[in-house]
Simulated scan of single mutants.
Amino acid sequence: MTPMPMVERASLPLLDIEVLRTFVAIAESGSFTRAARQVFRTPSALSMQIKRLEETLGQTLFVREARRVRLTPEGEMLLGYGRRLLKLNEEAVTQFLAPALEGRVGFGTTDDVGTRILPGVLAQFARSHPAVQVDVVVGSGAAMRQRLEAGELDLILVTVAMHGQSTQDEVVHSEPLVWAGREGGVAAQRSPLPVALAQHGCPWRKAALDALDRTGLSYRVAYTSEHCAGQEAAMLADLAVSPFPLALIRAPLRRLDGDTLPPLGDYQVALVRRDGLGEAGEALAARVIEAFRDLRG
């Protein structure tokens, strides 16, 4: 039996990194005009680049609408590849051209935030800047702010209320805060309503208590924990319900919908730098911001 001929790798077209940068800019902004301002080219030049890219791949990447453009399914697929290729290109160039960063960065975070992005951020940062030592501390938002002010930490991630952040806070993420409980549980039907909350000063706690007080719903604070793992344990045991980020709810927990529990709105995650943060700290801050952008998709 004659073997099937192998496809020559050299026959495959190579994707131009600048064209990929243009494609990602258009996809993220939803507009050729806005993307043109970002990459300092004209919209018509961008259109030509995308046309050539579509011809190279044999796929339509964008659906043009009256005031915006949106990705086709093939475009969505390419966006994931494009972002990864741009990151790899940046890392490769950094290794050879960027000045080597050295030093130590003290990074503090609350557990609900850090568990989502830290593994990827630290792995990527270690590849790009292997000579920088990153010391991670996990604790409450209030404790992180105190340690930042004392000079013990360089950079912190904390949760903040939608309109309660200080001028130092750079909001990097926003998401819904919802009521959660165990699937099939009865805690939500109890009266007074048992709630599990974070410690004083946490925006989740304030949002929940304000919402309950506004509606006049009878409740009792059944459990208080410094970490969201404590709230999660109370919900898993069906001993209480809790305000929780929608993105963190996993089976057997579920979002509690209905007219009996008041809406909680959104909360935000803020990045706070110490005054005089050095180059290593700024490089880590950039990675954190990028990780949350990727989280939003």
Score class of each variant (00 low, 15 high):
Q146N: 14
A211G: 00
A131D: 12
R190N: 11
A229C: 04
C202E: 13
E170Q: 15
A131N: 12
C228E: 06
L118F: 09
Q168F: 09
V172D: 00
A198N: 04
L122E: 07
A100H: 04
G216C: 01
L236D: 05
F125W: 11
R104N: 07
R127M: 13
G114V: 07
D135T: 14
P119Y: 09
Q124L: 07
W179C: 01
A211W: 02
G230W: 14
G230L: 12
G216Y: 07
M144V: 09
A222Q: 03
G164V: 08
A180Y: 03
P119W: 03
Q165P: 10
L148H: 06
G106R: 06
R220F: 02
Q165S: 11
L236M: 05
Q124K: 10
L101K: 00
Q189E: 15
S218I: 03
L212W: 03
E183C: 03
Y223V: 13
Q165D: 14
G139C: 10
A237R: 04
D213K: 01
I156K: 09
P99T: 11
V178I: 07
H163Q: 12
E175H: 14
T109Q: 07
V221N: 00
R214Q: 06
L118M: 13
V178A: 02
A196Q: 00
P130T: 10
E170H: 13
Y219T: 01
T109L: 05
L217Y: 00
A207S: 13
G181V: 05
H173D: 15
G114F: 08
R147E: 15
V136S: 14
E170S: 12
G201L: 05
G103V: 06
L148G: 02
L193W: 00
Q133L: 10
Q199K: 08
G181A: 13
R190I: 07
A188C: 10
Q146P: 01
E149Y: 01
L217C: 03
W179A: 00
R104S: 06
R104W: 01
W204H: 08
R104Y: 03
G201W: 04
Q168C: 12
H129C: 10
D213T: 04
G185I: 04
D238S: 11
L197I: 02
L101M: 11
V136E: 03
L153N: 05
A131V: 08
V134K: 01
V134E: 01
S166P: 00
D154V: 00
E175N: 10
A229T: 03
V178W: 01
Q189D: 15
